[in-house]
Design a protein around this nucleic acid. Structure first.
Lengths: 224, 224
DNA sequence: AAGAGTTTGTGAACGTGGGAACAAACCGAG
DNA sequence: CTCGGTTTGTTCCCACGTTCACAAACTCTT
């Protein structure tokens, strides 16, 4: 079962399951059914069971899942049993927030350096780390074996920063800058687009308030 | 064509197209083909054309699209031609960054209030707005007709904040807190999960470095 | 030991989305 | 006006993801 590739949609949900399991553990719940875990994760139980079946057969029929055991298996599958050094480039408001975000460090992720091109900010202390010049990127990546880079720069700088990251050997990029990044095929990019999310909400909100026809120019027959 | 529902996957890409069109306009490009726009948006041209065809027939065969016209049509479809007042709750590091994020205000979104439960932060000035007590939520929503709320609180507070938002009449929620929110069916929630994104990258990164079998416990036959 | 009651893992049906390929439609030259 | 070149809008097909429904497997009681 395990040797087969895990569907992308399932991979995207594994972190959610992991959080739900952690939450159950905090409440000292040792065992749970697919129904309980699914409800904690906000999905339906059939989907949850199919997702987990892609990892292996870690439950017991008639009983459910051992919370601790399942949590370990998912963490191992994602790769959180190992250490992931991360660099953050662009320490503006957002980079600042990311550096202080406990959700990164609490999983296996360790921020090893904060970089910024702005000379005026060099040496400033953020989340216990000194801001260093962007030119040190390559050396830092080599020294710590960094595989993941986070871009929190303005859009105009993002592609150039990304190119340097790729040159330095980084193969996974998390991009917060509102721009499309072009990378070689072996590099993964995930985009977190704050304003897109709001726009998607706005689209649905608009549909809620105007169920019929929001714009008369689209409905000539109403006028006729 | 337009009266039909627009697929969710298409809606999620409209903001990307909008940004690409803005970028073309800044370079004073008045007309573009589906190929050019697709490349600027990081998708293939067939997908782009199919997406646009869901909105209507705004291109000209043999010629391409008028950048300005198409931009307006997409903006109108999303609902960006109207004003969207927004409240942000939880002015920690992340809330701070969101309040200052220009990508919100530059589209039709207007942050009308910053709320925080922490009494010590009341009155503090962030991005030109005073932080106000969370208890004023309902009055603010009524006064400004707020339909969209942003949650940037710690996970523990998020569900309670969300419940108050729904009570106050908010029907779309953008959630940055790392927790699943439960809402009535008429309310939309979109989740932006920073640590999930990193975990998804880590999963793929792990697969890149260890193509065969990352864990011997899963491959008994290797041992046998 | 057998049967009743649970709960997982999976096979099959269904729906959504993506991509190739092509017909329809437009422009410009002659 | 016609023809060749170009680009859109759409159709068809395939792959992926979701959900239902059920057999397999386990526990507990009698």
């Amino acid at each position: 079962m395990s040797p087969t590739r895990i569907p992308e949609a399932t991979v995207a949900r594994l972190p959610v399951y992991l959080r739900a399991l952690n939450s159950l553990l905090e409440r000292e719940i040792r065992t749970c059914s697919s129904e309980e875990l699914a409800s904690a994760a906000g999905v339906n139980s059939a989907k949850l069971r199919k997702d987990l079946s892609h990892l292996g057969s870690y439950g017991t029929r008639g009983v459910g899942y051992d919370v601790e055991y399942l949590r370990y298996q998912i963490a191992r599958e994602i790769g959180l049993t190992q250490d992931w050094p991360v660099v953050i480039v662009g320490i503006g408001n957002l980079g600042h927030a990311l550096a202080n975000y406990s959700g990164f460090s609490s999983r296996g992720f360790r921020t090893v350096a904060l970089l910024d091109a702005d000379a005026a900010r060099q040496g400033e202390l953020v989340a216990g780390l000194k801001i260093r010049p962007f030119t040190e990127l390559s050396a830092i990546v080599r020294e710590h074996g960094v595989a993941i880079g986070v871009i929190a720069t303005p859009a105009a700088a993002a592609q150039s920063v990304c190119d340097h990251m790729v040159d330095a050997g980084i193969r996974s990029v998390l991009n917060f800058a509102p721009t499309v990044l072009t990378v070689p095929p072996e590099v993964d990019v995930r985009m977190v687009d704050l304003s897109s999310e709001l726009q998607i909400l706005a689209y649905h909100e608009q549909r809620k308030s105007a169920p019929a026809s929001p714009d008369p120019t689209l409905d000539p027959e109403v006028v006729a």
